[in-house]
Design a protein around this nucleic acid. Structure first.
Length: 387
DNA sequence: GAAAGGATGATCGATCAT
DNA sequence: ATGATCGATCATCCTTTC
């Protein structure tokens, strides 16, 4: 059992290291020294919950971070050193909230969120999705060996295991009876591959990767949300998206605040995770300006928008880099501003699974974070003028 | 061409052993 | 305290198949 103390100590550590960073920062916001950008990931990764929700305390926001608009930014928790402190510095010195979706569903997904939403009185979406592998896939229980102790899946990625991997596993197990525990080296090998590729037991000594519709379910999307596009694109777009239940935990507070609905600026929308979260929370969307570079993903979201008979307007744009002040002025003057700016920028150059270009925020795709900031800051500026 | 298959380490933190 | 080991990870690139 872990006491409360380590968590608090970590917070203090985190705060003091931020202070240290500020002291060390030279002119022009250049950071000098290694210790400067240390943001520690919490363990367990349950965000501000222990302190805020249970104790009902209220966090104070830096002046520059307060809305309007509300904003919600997401990216992967584990990044090269210094990335989260840079993100935090740009986003008005707000401390990221790190949350693992395994506290909301049967699959892990460790993410960091920077947002200025109130953190009191947050509640999970009901009904809760299955919290364990057996809950999500009851049929696997029949085949699950006792020596595989997994109860949750790891992060759902953009690719699945090839047939050669699952066949190698089957071959490694073929000499052992079903009720026999194989030698330790065999178990280690099989478990290593199962964890790495998120394999589940679908037959006697047989493992398989998840199907696209199973990934949809784990991530909280409607069944067959991504049907109609290639299997490869389904895995890719799902692997790049939100876990709906983990995200929907946060904007519930908007429901009471804006009973008539909100205007949403959704950047890096993908297949519409943010919109689905708001929809499931029962927050009407009056106008959604959605920016997404991939046509397949835009089509998936538009399809969902039409099928669910959304009453609001959906405006789709392709490239965040083309989104300038004139365009924003146009939208803001035509429907009076955005209540929420939401999005998770591309993580390609941040994640460990990228062997070739893990270049941090300098990377070709991940540097689009700066466009998130640029656009958010433009919205703040324009809305301040209107008010 | 589009879709699928298959091979390809490194980083960073947590945990363990010394 | 300090080093060894373990464990997880919103992927890319080239080839093959259709």
């Amino acid at each position: 059992m872990r006491s409360e103390y380590p968590e608090k100590n970590k917070r203090k550590l985190c705060e003091s290291s931020l202070l240290k960073r500020k002291r060390i920062m030279g002119h022009g916001n250049q950071i000098i020294g290694e210790d400067a950008d240390a943001i520690h990931l919490p363990n367990p990764m349950i965000g501000f919950r222990t302190l805020a929700d249970l104790c009902q305390i209220h966090r104070s926001l830096p002046e520059a971070a307060t809305g309007p608009p509300y904003f919600y930014y997401e990216n992967v928790a584990s990044t090269p050193k210094g990335v989260w402190s840079t993100i935090s510095r740009f986003l008005y010195d707000m401390k990221p909230e790190f949350v693992d979706s395994k506290f909301f569903c049967a699959a892990a997904r460790k993410k960091g969120y920077v947002h200025n939403l109130p953190i009191k009185n947050r509640f999970p979406l009901v009904p809760l999705p299955p919290q364990t592998i057996f809950g999500a896939f009851p049929m696997t229980r029949r085949w699950w060996p006792t020596w595989d102790d997994r109860t949750k899946l790891n992060c759902l990625q953009t690719c699945i295991a090839s047939a050669t991997i699952t066949e190698r596993i089957m071959k490694a197990l073929k000499d052992y009876d079903e009720d026999e525990i194989p030698p330790e080296s065999v178990c280690r090998y099989v478990l290593y591959e199962c964890r790495k590729w998120n394999l589940v037991w679908v037959g006697k000594k047989k493992v398989a990767p998840l199907e696209p519709d199973e990934v949809e379910m784990l991530l909280g999307f409607p069944r067959d949300h991504t049907r109609g596009i290639s299997r490869t694109d389904r895995y890719k777009s799902l692997g790049n998206s939100f876990q709906i239940d983990a995200v929907a935990y946060d904007p519930l507070v908007l429901k009471d605040r804006f009973p008539n609905g909100i205007n949403v600026l959704s950047l890096f929308s993908g297949i519409g995770g943010a919109e689905i979260a708001l929809y499931r929370l029962g927050i009407p969307m009056k106008n959604v300006v959605s920016v997404e570079i991939l046509e397949v993903s835009r089509n998936v979201m538009r399809c969902w928008w039409e099928q669910t008979n959304q009453r609001g307007n959906l405006y789709h744009l392709a490239d965040v880099q083309d989104f300038n002040a004139d365009r924003l002025e146009h939208y803001i003057s035509s429907f009076g501003g955005f209540e929420l700016v939401i999005g998770g920028s591309t993580c390609n150059n941040l994640v460990s699974s990228n062997r070739h270009h893990r270049d941090g925020l300098k990377g070709k795709e991940s540097s689009l974070f700066y466009d998130y900031f640029r656009i958010l800051d433009l919205v703040k500026g324009i809305m301040a003028r209107y008010n």
